[in-house]
């Protein structure tokens, strides 16, 4: 079984797994820089308009944001447990934990959706559509546009992560992965943790602005 999955260009399975893992870390590094550009935009405008920027973001609900932080951290924990158990060959347990994590992801999206619905109702929308405050001072609209763009981009990553988690969970149940074959499980886990890490930074920047 394990000899079969060694592709011809690699010398050993250990190297092949190392290659897959390294590639995933590099992809995550690249993804982080994608958000890094947006963090630079955030920092630039927050430095330029310290008061107006915070004023705009103060509107966000701290309770919902913090709920989502706890939800994502917990989902990250269940994913980490799942990766831990696949190494001990407990594929069914891993599948169960990944399903739970996917559901946590869904909870996250529902909470985010409630927030978005609230904002739409109040016309706290990005760029030209922002009419929450009449004649907003410079910087307010930028803050809100960034909020929408960064959280929506993060939301897309959550959806992508959920799809991957669900697929790996199904494959675990089918007996595809075990103690000696789990790099894919690990890599999907890594992706989900990245989604968590990005949110760990988005949360204080967009919700804890007092």
């Amino acid at each position: 079984m394990s000899a079969q999955r060694l592709v011809e260009q690699f010398e050993s399975l250990e190297k092949q797994d190392h290659a897959a893992r390294l590639a995933m870390w590099m992809f995550l590094g690249s993804e982080t820089l994608l958000f890094g550009a947006l963090f630079a935009v955030y920092a630039y405008y927050r430095g330029m308009y310290p008061d107006e920027f915070v004023q705009a973001l103060h509107h966000n609900s701290v309770a919902l944001g913090t709920t989502n932080t706890v939800v994502l951290i917990t989902s990250s924990f269940t994913v980490a447990l799942g990766v831990h158990f696949i190494r001990e060959n407990k594929a069914r347990l891993t599948a169960g934990l990944f399903v739970v994590s996917t559901l946590f992801g869904a909870v996250f999206l529902v909470v985010k959706g409630i927030e978005y619905a609230h904002h739409i109702h109040e016309n706290a929308l990005p760029s030209g559509m922002y009419t929450f405050i009449d004649k907003p001072p410079a910087g307010v609209v930028l803050g809100y546009t960034l909020y929408w763009f960064m959280t929506a981009l993060h939301g897309l990553h959550v959806i992508a992560g959920m799809i991957m988690l669900a697929v790996v969970a199904v494959l675990c149940l089918k007996g595809r992965y075990g103690a000696h074959r789990n790099v894919a499980v690990e890599n999907v886990g890594l992706y989900w943790h990245l989604v968590d890490v990005v949110w760990i930074f988005l949360w204080p920047l967009f919700y804890l602005t007092d």
Binding site: E31, L34, S127, T145
Partner: peptide
């Protein structure tokens, strides 16, 4: 990725008026 993001912002601005760099809203 940084170029990708800046061009996405530009494309969204050109197509939908995202306006992150628009001086009208204080953008630089």
């Amino acid at each position: 990725p940084v170029l990708g993001m800046s061009l996405v912002l530009l494309a969204l601005d050109h197509a939908f008026g995202l306006s992150l760099f628009n001086p009208r809203y204080g953008g630089d």
